[in-house]
């Protein structure tokens, strides 16, 4: 086994996904199969190979420090599931 249910549960926590026991079992099996498959990459020696983050080599894209009109609070909150006045509201965060 490449991955255990405990690992999957940990990852689900990071990803903020709640999994039922059945989902956990099913996902563990499918992730295990996938991780078993991707293991084939280890057949390749990649010592000294520079990783590719962008397929087309590029650098330095900038914008000028010029203010562009904002969309305004009404538009910002147009899709908010829950808004109070001009704020987004979420369940209380304990600090």
């Amino acid at each position: 086994m490449k991955i255990t249910e405990k690992d999957v549960a940990y990852v689900a926590g990071l990803a903020r996904l709640a999994l039922s026991p059945d989902e956990l079992t099913d996902l563990t099996g499918k992730m295990d199969a996938m991780l078993g498959y991707v293991d084939k990459l280890n057949q390749l020696n990649t010592d000294g190979i520079v990783p590719t983050a962008h397929a087309v080599p590029m650098a330095n894209a900038f914008r000028d420090d010029q203010v562009v009109a904002s969309i305004g609070a009404a538009a910002a909150l147009a899709n908010a599931p829950l808004g109070v006045e001009d704020y987004f509201q979420v369940p209380r965060v304990i600090e």
Binding site: L41, N42, T46, I49, V50, P51, T52
Partner: peptide, 14 residues
């Protein structure tokens, strides 16, 4: 082991 390895293999494919 996974992400970085894949990025390196991506270089080989390129």
């Amino acid at each position: 082991a996974y992400y970085l390895k894949a990025q390196k293999v991506r270089t080989l494919i390129r």
